[in-house]
Simulated scan of single mutants.
Amino acid sequence: MAHEDLPNIAPELFRAPDPAELGLKPEVTHPPRILLLYGSLRERSFSRLVVEEATRLLRAMGAEPRIFHPSGLPLPDAGDAAHPKVQEIRDLATWAEGMVWCSPERHGAMTGVIKAQIDWIPLSLGAARPTQGKTLAVMEVSGGSQSFNAVNQLRVLGRWMRMLTIPNQSSVPKAFMEFGDDDRMKPSPYYDRIVDVMEELVRFTWLVRDRVGALTDRYSERRESADALSARVNQRAL
């Protein structure tokens, strides 16, 4: 299943992940919903271009991708949660069943732009948990030699947000050399790795999305709920 919009793909080798090959009979059959975040506001942002390539691949693999564009998002604590861009990213995080985070590496770390987006997504929104038990793929771009500082930091964040971060990842060095004047990625092992990461993300999302409740059921939270219920019953009895 290759598309004209994927010029780097060998059609005979490309295939969309199928839940049947994983032995799954999905309870819900809608396409996996994937939110993609990128970490630069530059007019020609290579993290955005990588995310756009990933979006094309995800769509060809049968997923439903959506990109959040961070321009206009206030810094955490410098704006109100009612801000339209904050509401947008929170709604998308709740909608998503998996995510892709792609950051440039700046001063050996992820950018403040990507961190601000993640910081606006809370662990809970009322009864909803926007990130817990959802899948995550991490990627980075850099202007110099290949590095993994940003993806390593994004993995720490993914764990903190209680997400299932897939094993594979992508790091694109000298990203300015990997894109043509048309802003499309050139054929390379770096492009092939992005294909691998998106395939793995879709497979893991199929695997876990119907099972999030069972995978995230915790004794400590059951105890907290029981204690809270007991406190309410005792309060009413007074």
Rank of each mutant, 00 (worst) to 15 (best):
R59D: 10
V172F: 03
D210F: 00
P167Q: 00
L24Q: 05
V141H: 02
Q87C: 00
L13C: 15
G98F: 04
M198P: 00
A96N: 11
V197I: 04
A175G: 09
G213D: 11
L229F: 07
A228C: 04
M177W: 11
E88M: 06
Q235N: 08
V28L: 15
S230Y: 00
Q235Y: 15
V208H: 14
G213V: 02
A109Q: 13
E64Q: 13
P17K: 08
V28E: 15
F148M: 09
L164D: 12
H3I: 04
D182Q: 06
A109S: 15
G112W: 01
I166A: 07
S124E: 11
Y190R: 10
P74G: 00
A116S: 15
Q132M: 09
E88C: 04
E4M: 15
H30D: 15
A231T: 06
L229R: 07
M163K: 05
E12Q: 15
G158A: 04
F176L: 10
E178Q: 13
R44V: 09
A93E: 00
M139Q: 05
N8H: 15
L22W: 03
I166G: 08
L73S: 06
M139G: 10
P189K: 02
F14K: 01
D210W: 00
N8T: 14
M139I: 01
L125S: 01
S225I: 01
L24E: 03
G143A: 05
E140K: 13
Q87L: 05
R232L: 02
I121A: 07
E221Q: 10
A228F: 10
T135A: 13
G158F: 08
R59A: 12
A78R: 12
E12P: 14
A78C: 13
A82Y: 07
V28G: 15
D182C: 01
L24V: 02
W101F: 12
S124L: 03
Q87P: 09
T205P: 01
S225G: 06
G158L: 06
R59Q: 14
G126L: 05
S71L: 08
L154T: 07
Q132G: 12
P70N: 11
A93F: 01
G158M: 08
D181P: 06
H83C: 03
T135G: 05
R222F: 00
M99V: 06
S124N: 11
L73I: 02
I121C: 05
E27H: 15
I121E: 03
A231E: 07
T216Q: 05
A128F: 06
S170D: 14
V138R: 02
G213S: 07
L13I: 07
S47T: 10
R48N: 15
I194D: 05
F148R: 10
H107I: 02
S40N: 14
F176Y: 13
G62D: 07
H107L: 06
Q87G: 09
M177H: 13
Y190L: 10
R42G: 12
D119Y: 00
P70F: 03
M110F: 14
L58N: 06
P19M: 09
D91V: 01
L6G: 11
P189G: 04
F204A: 14
A128Y: 03
R218Y: 10
R159L: 08
K174I: 04
S171F: 02
A109N: 14
W160C: 04
V51F: 08
H69S: 12
V156Q: 11
A228M: 08
S170W: 09
